Amino acid sequence: RHRTTFTSLQLEELEKVFQKTHYPDVYVREQLALRTELTEARVQVWFQNRRAKWRK
């Protein structure tokens, strides 16, 4: 699998949602996936990684 490189616009969208909730439900993730043109799975993994980073 290749590494997904996020654009600054995608990161902006993702971070905006992360500020509101660290655990977006499937509906929120789907909406975010559509807005960022990423798959829902990529969005889910981004949140997992972002939460790990936040905990440190």
Rank of each mutant, 00 (worst) to 15 (best):
R1M: 14
R1I: 12
R1A: 04
R1H: 14
H2W: 04
H2Q: 12
H2D: 15
H2K: 15
H2F: 08
H2M: 12
R3H: 15
R3V: 04
R3C: 14
R3L: 14
R3E: 11
R3I: 10
R3P: 12
T4G: 13
T4S: 14
T4K: 08
T4Q: 13
T4F: 13
T5C: 13
T5V: 11
T5K: 14
T5M: 15
T5Q: 14
T5P: 10
T5R: 12
F6S: 03
T7L: 02
T7S: 08
T7N: 06
T7C: 04
T7E: 04
T7D: 05
T7F: 03
T7P: 01
T7H: 02
S8A: 15
S8M: 11
S8L: 12
S8V: 11
S8F: 09
S8G: 11
S8Q: 15
L9I: 08
L9G: 12
L9A: 15
L9H: 13
L9Q: 15
L9W: 13
L9E: 15
L9S: 14
Q10M: 03
Q10R: 03
Q10N: 01
Q10W: 00
Q10V: 06
L11G: 05
L11M: 11
L11I: 13
L11K: 08
L11D: 14
L11P: 03
L11W: 09
E12D: 11
E12P: 00
E12F: 07
E12G: 06
E12N: 11
E12L: 10
E13Q: 08
E13D: 06
E13A: 08
E13M: 08
E13P: 01
E13I: 09
E13Y: 09
L14C: 04
L14N: 00
L14F: 01
L14S: 01
L14M: 13
L14V: 00
E15I: 01
E15A: 02
E15H: 01
E15P: 01
E15K: 04
E15N: 03
E15F: 00
E15C: 03
E15M: 05
E15V: 03
K16A: 08
K16I: 07
K16G: 06
K16M: 06
V17W: 04
V17E: 12
V17Q: 11
V17H: 03
V17F: 07
V17T: 12
V17P: 00
F18E: 01
F18Q: 01
F18R: 01
F18N: 00
F18G: 02
F18D: 04
F18C: 00
Q19H: 13
Q19P: 00
Q19W: 04
Q19E: 11
K20G: 05
K20W: 07
K20N: 07
K20T: 14
K20M: 07
K20L: 08
T21K: 02
T21G: 06
T21D: 12
T21Y: 04
T21A: 04
T21W: 06
H22K: 14
H22C: 05
H22F: 05
H22M: 13
H22T: 05
H22P: 13
H22Q: 12
H22N: 05
H22D: 07
H22W: 06
Y23E: 06
Y23S: 07
Y23G: 03
Y23C: 09
Y23D: 06
Y23L: 04
Y23V: 04
P24W: 00
P24E: 02
P24Q: 03
P24T: 02
P24I: 03
P24H: 00
P24M: 01
P24S: 02
P24K: 00
P24Y: 00
D25Q: 02
D25K: 03
D25C: 04
D25T: 07
D25N: 09
V26Y: 10
V26P: 12
V26A: 13
V26L: 12
V26D: 12
V26M: 12
V26K: 15
Y27R: 15
Y27S: 14
Y27V: 12
V28W: 05
V28Q: 14
V28P: 01
V28C: 13
V28S: 09
V28H: 09
R29W: 05
R29E: 04
R29L: 12
R29F: 04
R29V: 15
R29C: 11
R29M: 15
R29H: 02
R29D: 01
E30D: 06
E30P: 01
E30F: 05
E30Y: 07
E30S: 12
E30T: 09
E30H: 11
E30V: 08
Q31N: 09
Q31H: 13
Q31R: 10
Q31G: 10
L32C: 03
L32Q: 04
A33E: 05
A33W: 01
A33L: 04
A33C: 14
A33D: 01
L34G: 11
L34H: 06
L34W: 06
L34Q: 13
L34Y: 08
L34S: 13
L34V: 13
L34C: 06
L34I: 12
R35K: 15
R35N: 04
R35V: 11
R35P: 03
R35I: 11
R35S: 07
T36A: 08
T36S: 05
T36Q: 02
T36E: 02
T36W: 04
T36P: 00
E37Q: 15
E37V: 05
E37A: 13
E37D: 14
E37S: 13
E37T: 08
E37N: 13
L38E: 05
L38G: 04
L38D: 05
L38R: 00
L38Q: 07
T39A: 07
T39H: 03
T39L: 03
T39F: 00
T39V: 02
T39K: 05
E40Y: 04
E40V: 11
E40R: 04
E40Q: 08
E40A: 10
E40D: 11
A41I: 05
A41R: 07
A41C: 10
A41P: 11
A41M: 06
A41F: 05
R42E: 15
R42F: 06
R42Y: 09
R42L: 15
R42Q: 15
V43F: 06
V43K: 02
V43Q: 00
V43L: 08
V43T: 01
V43S: 01
V43E: 01
Q44S: 14
Q44E: 14
Q44R: 10
Q44F: 09
Q44N: 11
Q44P: 00
Q44D: 15
V45A: 13
V45K: 11
V45E: 15
W46G: 02
W46I: 01
W46L: 02
W46N: 02
W46C: 01
F47T: 03
F47G: 03
F47V: 02
F47A: 00
F47I: 00
F47W: 02
F47Y: 02
F47R: 01
F47K: 02
Q48V: 10
Q48F: 04
Q48C: 07
Q48W: 07
Q48S: 11
Q48T: 11
Q48K: 13
N49F: 07
N49M: 09
N49V: 07
N49E: 15
N49A: 11
R50I: 02
R50Y: 03
R50S: 04
R50Q: 09
R50E: 10
R50N: 09
R50A: 07
R51K: 06
R51T: 03
R51E: 03
R51V: 06
R51C: 03
R51Q: 04
R51A: 03
R51P: 02
R51F: 02
A52F: 04
A52Q: 10
A52I: 10
A52V: 11
A52M: 12
A52L: 07
A52T: 09
K53D: 15
K53R: 10
K53H: 11
K53F: 05
K53Q: 15
K53E: 15
W54E: 15
W54H: 15
W54S: 13
W54D: 12
R55D: 15
R55V: 09
R55C: 11
R55F: 10
R55S: 11
R55K: 06
R55Y: 09
R55Q: 13
K56T: 08
K56G: 08
K56V: 09
K56Q: 07
K56M: 01
K56A: 11
K56R: 11
K56C: 15
